[in-house]
């Protein structure tokens, strides 16, 4: 043979999608929420975000180098993890704690389980819960937007504050825009929704999980969240806490969510129910992190029971 040709299996063409582009889209989608965080909580917030992203990327690079695996920082997944971790931290988070969170997220949760796509829980959420349990004080040190260092409770915290004599609940407008206490990236429902619409429009995520999640929580808190049945302030619940951030950006994490539409709806409903139960019936004001982590663990099971029938209605070979 004078000429050598490449032989490979079909198909011989591929579309332009890439892991890197998907990650880039997620980063773009998180920019409004990040900016909102910086706007409401001041420039130090930017520091938290940068440290988190940098620590995640370095952890990814170093851990893979140490394990003699290929360098994967260019797929940008570590940037996404870093960004999500920062947005899940209070603005007052000490930087050393941010670094610890980053290492836990990338090294322990992601790389030790096989790297991208293999982690069984969402790295950023897992790290957040790790920090929450290890440094409860730092993780619940909330501040009011604008007023430097003035402590405050989160909107959901107010719901659980039974002793306080006079509680002023934030307005829906403040909840929607983000003029409230909370984690850096969770406060502005508006900013999160803008990014969510972008992700759905770019087909990076399907709308199934966010809609099922938010819808279920809304329904649950409407039915059980008030003094009588069907009297709960569901809008307050939907706009508060980490729901938007969790439903749009965390519960939809590819590696830790089901792969079929049916499975994804089950995932969303499960997250909504667990969040509602935790918010209404436990000591914790907020339940999004725990709900998503619990559903993450259930994903292999959901996948197992939602194997679709082949086109034409074939049965599984038993």
């Amino acid at each position: 043979m004078e000429k050598s040709f490449i032989v490979s299996s079909s198909p011989h063409i591929r579309d332009n999608a890439s892991t890197r582009q998907i990650m880039l889209d997620v980063i773009i989608a998180l920019i409004p929420a990040s900016l909102a965080g910086v706007y409401f909580f001041g420039p130090r917030t930017l520091m938290v975000i940068l440290v988190s992203v940098l620590a995640c990327v370095l952890s990814e690079y170093a851990s893979r180098k140490l394990m003699k695996r290929s360098n994967t920082i260019l797929d940008l997944s570590a940037v996404v993890t870093g960004l999500l971790l920062a947005l899940n931290l209070p603005p007052t988070a000490p930087l050393w704690m941010v670094v610890i969170g980053a290492v836990v997220a990338v090294v322990v949760i992601k790389q030790l389980f096989g790297g991208l796509g293999q982690n069984f829980i969402n790295p950023a959420l897992g790290a957040r819960v790790f920090l929450f349990i290890s440094y409860a004080g730092h993780m619940t040190n909330w501040v009011i937007p604008g007023a430097d260092g003035v402590s405050s409770a989160t909107p959901l915290g107010l719901l659980k504050a039974e002793e306080a004599a006079e509680i002023v609940f934030p307005s829906y407008k403040d909840l929607f825009l983000g003029n409230i206490g909370g984690c850096i990236g969770e406060v502005s429902a508006a900013a999160l929704l803008i990014g969510g619409v972008y992700l759905v429009a770019k087909k990076v995520i399907g709308p199934e999980i966010p809609l099922a999640y938010i819808g279920t929580l809304g329904l649950f808190t409407w039915i059980f969240g008030g003094p009588t049945f069907f009297a709960g302030d569901f809008l307050y619940h939907i706009l508060s806490g980490g729901l938007m951030l969790g439903a749009i950006y965390m519960a939809t994490d590819y590696a830790t969510s089901p792969m079929t539409t049916k499975g994804r709806i089950i995932m969303g409903i499960g997250c909504g129910l667990l969040t509602g139960i935790i918010r209404l019936y436990t000591n914790y004001p907020e339940g999004v992190s725990f709900a998503i982590l619990l559903m993450n663990i259930a994903v292999p099971l959901i996948d197992r029971y939602t194997v679709p029938k082949s086109f034409g209605g074939g049965k599984a070979v038993e």
Binding site: A17, S77, Y254, F311
Partner: peptide, 22 residues
């Protein structure tokens, strides 16, 4: 053809399969 990377479980193959497979 581009090099293979790790599966990120995005589910695009599932959506694309006309035979409804995974």
């Amino acid at each position: 053809l581009p090099k293979e990377q790790a599966c990120i479980r995005c589910g695009r193959c599932v959506k694309a399969c006309p035979m409804n497979l995974l």
